[in-house]
Design a protein around this nucleic acid. Structure first.
Length: 506
RNA sequence: GCGGUAGUAGCUCAGAUGGUAGAGCAUCAGCUUCCCAAGCUGAGGGUCGUGGGUUCGAUCCCCAUUUACCGCUCCA
């Protein structure tokens, strides 16, 4: 029995060996945490994207799509909060060589003081019983008041120095508070350094007034800045949604775990604009709707779970992840966030343009609230792949590796295989191939024994193999082999499209 | 980014106390004509991750670098 880590490694090698995923620039040793999709990988990826797009845009009359550029006006990232919030101040302990987020160290320190207060309060509560007035106690007990004052001044100091980008003062604060490394127990700290998670480049001539441009760290902003254009031209009114798929870039300090955390990745996002006050209803609606989408792929519901956020991002008033059980454990696949009017409101402020919907009935305008569904395409790819990967021991003692990819996502839908490459069988097979290839992604192969070709198709997850044998020449029947059962049926060749089509409906 | 481990053919690996490398599978060509991988014959493919140093000579020793894995850290 392979451990899960082994399984994950096997999936990675399988992905490479069968042309799904390659390390980027591999002949130059690769580039850390960047991957390329191969001939079968790109088919699977495209199919997932298309399946998502159809279920969002095509099946919802009030959702439309856009494709925004990766480059955006620099102010977008000020308005979104990314320039300020998207960078972490890091500090290293020179003795233990451990690295920490400076703000987390300070938060932990604050938490310790808060714990102290809580202990005090709990003790008092026990002492006074029913009559205990916690609020009053907190305001009057000298020790509690003193500690609370400490917390407030630390917070004030931290926010002001961090806000002013005065990292030296953040370090000073850490030293003054006497914060020690939990591992080494020493106060031997390096300077605080900022790691901006956004990639940047210059637009225009580098010599002349070069403008710093960021590669978008999320696709969402492309939707928000187009809110007015889309609402007007598509003549929409809330509730309505805008969907987009595309690349995003994050300069992660640690990017690892194959496709799971990459520096360049693809998101599939939909921002749903609603009337303020109705956002929680829609939040719940989209949580349920998105979970339905995942399970519609035939992957068992037990592989998924919700994870509700306790700590919310600066823009959200509710947030949940849909997590998938990868071989490396349950990990985030999709986020459903209630983003309030943070983004539109902020862009309204920074741009000076009114980003509102005007309600004719009430004769007043409002900034819509936003429910976001944001799913990682590469992560979904990895989820599908890792769930599909199976090693089977067959009755005859041989083993086979099969990808049980849902037929609708399979890179190749039909393999057309002449039993042998003479006696006119290849010609007949070509004839069938030509009839099928305009509707389905097909694969023709006449090399090697038939059994070996079946196994190759199993390894890339092809749901059906059509075999042309001598009988085909007599009566135009072929055998159709099912990937999962390995069973074959003899059918008239004209019946192939209908059978395949049926398999592709969900 | 820090610490640890590792990098030999597409894959899985072998190898010598330093004398410029081998197997199986895979790939390609031909034979075989077969319904569930590994039949026969032949061929191609590696400056032993990269760069530098020590040495008469380095894939092997030393340094740097890069990539992957594990741990820490991080994931708005």
């Amino acid at each position: 029995m392979a451990t899960n880590e082994d399984l994950f490694k096997k999936i990675i090698s399988h992905a490479k060996e069968y042309g799904f995923v390659f390390p980027s620039s591999e002949i130059y040793d690769g580039l850390s945490a960047v991957y390329d999709y191969g001939p079968f990988g790109v088919e699977l990826k495209n199919n997932i994207r298309e399946y998502w797009w159809k279920s969002m845009v095509q099946y919802h009359e009030n959702i439309v799509g856009i494709d925004a550029a990766i480059f955006m006006h620099p102010t977008v990232w000020k308005a979104s909060g990314h320039v300020d919030a998207f960078s972490d101040p890091m500090i290293d302990n020179k003795d233990s060589k451990k690295r920490y987020r400076a703000d987390v160290l300070i938060e932990d320190h604050i938490q310790k003081i808060e714990d102290k207060i809580q202990k005090e309060v709990d003790k008092a509560k026990q002492r006074f019983g029913e009559t205990f007035d916690e609020k009053m106690y907190r305001e009057t007990n000298p020790r509690v008041v003193e500690n609370q004052g400490k917390i407030d001044s630390i917070k004030k100091r931290f926010y002001s120095s961090f806000g002013n980008n005065d990292l030296d003062d953040v370090k000073l604060l850490i030293e003054e508070l006497g914060i020690v490394c939990p591992v080494s127990g020493t106060k031997n700290w390096t300077d605080v350094r900022q790691f901006n998670l956004m990639f940047s480049t210059q637009m225009g001539s580098v010599n002349e007034d070069a403008n710093m441009i960021y590669l978008r760290p999320e696709t969402a902003q492309g939707i928000f800045v187009n809110f007015l254009n889309v609402m007007k031209t598509a003549r929409l009114k809330p509730p309505f949604g805008i969907a987009q798929t595309g690349k995003a870039f994050r300069n992660e300090i640690v990017a690892r775990q194959f496709l799971f955390r990459m520096r360049e990745f693809e998101q599939m996002e939909m921002q749903f604009f609603v009337k303020p006050g109705e956002e929680m209803e829609w939040y719940e609606y989209w949580k349920a709707e998105r979970m339905k989408w995942h399970t519609s792929l035939g992957i068992p519901a037990s592989k998924y779970r919700f994870h509700n956020h306790d700590k919310l991002a600066h823009y959200a008033n509710a947030a949940a992840d849909i997590e998938f059980e990868f071989p490396i454990g349950f990990k985030e696949l999709e986020g459903i966030h209630s983003r309030t009017d943070f983004d539109l409101g902020s862009h309204q402020k920074f741009s000076g343009k009114k980003l509102q919907f005007f309600d004719q009935e009430k004769n007043e305008g409002y900034v819509p609230y936003v429910i976001e569904t944001s799913i990682g395409l590469d992560r979904t790819f990895l989820a599908v792949l890792s769930h599909a990967y199976k090693e089977e021991k067959l009755e005859d003692g041989t083993e086979r590796v099969v990808l049980g990819i849902p037929a609708i996502l399979a890179p190749i839908k039909v393999a057309v295989l002449p039993l042998i490459k003479k006696d006119g069988l290849p010609e007949k097979a070509r004839e069938i191939m030509d009839k099928l290839k305009y509707e389905f992604r097909c694969f023709y192969e006449e090399k090697d024994t038939i059994g070996r070709r079946y196994r190759r198709m199993d390894a890339i997850g092809t749901p059906y193999c059509i075999t042309i044998d001598h009988q085909t020449l007599q009566d135009n029947t072929v055998t159709i082999r099912d990937r999962d059962t390995m069973l074959q049926d003899r059918i008239p060749m004209d019946a192939i499209p209908e059978i395949v089509r049926k398999k592709l409906t969900i």
